[in-house]
Design a protein around this nucleic acid. Structure first.
Lengths: 129, 129
DNA sequence: ATAAAACCTGTAGCCACTACAGGATCAAGC
DNA sequence: GCTTGATCCTGTAGTGGCTACAGGTTTTAT
């Protein structure tokens, strides 16, 4: 059993974030030492690492918790997992498309905006009626 | 001079958002009618539309305000504008790259996760030590 | 003995809105 | 004149997912 700082180091999840996950019920309350300090088992650290990986993959905290629950709940229902992953993949693709649209629009807007023209063409176009 | 609802319609900025911009000092306080209702001029609406366009291009509200100030401040300093736009473009490109990395990682993770396997391979990999 | 590090609880701040609650006023139809 | 519904007002709280204190206790190292 290790203290919260060591659990943070081993899982990659920040100390304050671990306490936040506990408050929010994302992870179960850990054991406590006689001095009231939190004590984490290897399983606790595993959960935190799992959550970190989900967050790094861009899953919402809610989805991350759902995946963790699926992972812990005996029958790892692959269909449910891949449906969740598929929805997330779709949203990632939509975001990419949206950002590429933005990139193109920004490129167009700044195209003539290189030299020290007195009336900036980008501002002009943003002002257009 | 028009009421806030009409200003919202003409600019595309929501009513609550307009009041929020006013509270935050993004736009100047508009005129008021005798009954204390806000009254917007064509210039006010133009400002809101300008801000809407900046936000739609993904600029932060702070950057949008900076662009608006540059636009209003006589000498439209093109260099400053394009520096701001360039920084934003860079951040958009970084976000695209990051999301494409995510997309690839998600694809790999769910590759073997199609059939009703008892032990979901995606969860397995998320659990890996 | 003392200093620094680590821990505790609880609260507030970040961004850019959005959604109320609870009230005042206005416009249109009868 | 009266009712109904739309619009407006102020002020506050909630969203996601942390992050950063403040102000305290305890542990660890010198």
């Amino acid at each position: 059993m290790i203290a919260i700082g060591e659990a943070a180091r081993q899982s990659g999840v920040g100390i304050e974030t671990i306490r936040y996950y506990e408050r929010e019920g994302i992870v179960p309350r850990p054991a406590r030492a006689a001095n009231n300090r939190r004590l984490y088992s290897a399983q606790d650290v595993g959960r935190l690492r799992f959550l970190k990986r989900c967050r790094d993959l861009g899953f919402s905290l809610g989805d991350a918790k759902a995946l963790l629950d699926l992972s812990e709940g005996g029958a790892a229902d692959c269909a449910e997992v891949s449906a969740l992953a598929q929805r997330h993949m779709d949203s990632v693709r939509r975001k990419i498309a949206e950002l590429q649209r933005l990139e193109a629009a920004l490129g167009e807007l700044t195209a003539n905006c290189a030299e020290g023209s007195v009336d900036c063409p980008m501002l002009g176009r943003l002002r257009m009626a």
